[in-house]
Write a protein that binds this DNA or RNA. Structure first.
Length: 213
DNA sequence: CGTGTCAACCTGAGCA
DNA sequence: TGCTCAGGTTGACACG
């Protein structure tokens, strides 16, 4: 059989509506193939039949391995979930981490927000998860942290902006009042006319502000 | 039934 | 070239 990996994957993608997209990188090809397998698995939970029909022999070993992992990966599919009566061979049932798994991941994240491969493998073994799952959890966790921090920063900036705006209004009003009192050449008025700017301290941030005349 | 959450995935960039 | 990451997206599920 000829060695034409792209055609193999393209064929399968076309067969399940992926539009025949052929990714450039091998890793991406593999990802697409895995995505294809999700759907192939949906059509054929046992895996082997649908997969062997669609792929050349070069892929069989890998594909079979992945398909078996899939069966392992979604244990709820195997009617172990007693209260899930509508077990309808859906291929990607949402995985929910247990409280223990979540808290251990959280604790690990508190210690270091990134993991080296050894730490990742150790944590995966400890939690009875795949390293990929641990990796994804940390990626998502970092994204959530960043999002939260962005929201906090946004709120702080909004408050700071409001404070500055209030301070600006107050200073403008004060300046107007001072000008209204301009009955004679007081030292302040002389200073104002010379420099055309007035400096003051912002009460909210303790920075020096320049008030343009 | 609309919406939020989150695991899983995709893609492009940076790095060794 | 392969790996890891950030950022964005998808899809399953829970909840009001």
């Amino acid at each position: 059989m000829e060695d034409n990996n792209e055609e193999c994957i393209t064929g399968l993608c076309l067969g399940i509506g992926m539009g025949g997209h052929v990714p450039k990188k091998n890793k991406q090809k593999e990802n697409k193939a895995v995505a294809c397998l999700d759907l192939a698995f949906e059509l054929c939970p046992k895996g082997e039949e649908a997969i062997n029909v669609n792929l050349h022999h070069h892929h069989h070993e890998k594909v079979e391995r992945i398909s078996l992992e899939r069966i392992h990966e979604y244990p709820n599919e195997k009617s172990t979930d007693s209260d899930n009566s509508n077990n309808n061979n859906r291929c990607r049932k949402k995985l929910r981490l247990s409280k223990e798994q979540s808290s251990m991941l959280e604790n690990s994240f508190k210690q270091h927000s990134t993991l080296n491969p050894v730490q990742k493998q150790a944590l995966a073994d400890q939690l009875n998860l795949k390293t990929r799952q641990v990796e994804v959890w940390f990626q998502n966790r970092r994204a959530r942290t960043k999002l939260k921090q962005t929201e906090v920063d946004h709120e702080l900036l909004k408050k700071h902006c409001q404070n500055l705006s209030d301070e600006n209004k107050r200073l403008k009003k004060e300046l107007q009042e001072l000008r209204a009192l301009k009955v004679g050449p007081s030292p302040l008025c002389i200073q104002l006319s010379k420099t055309a700017t007035l400096t003051t301290m912002c009460s909210s941030c303790d920075r020096e502000l320049k008030l343009v005349n």
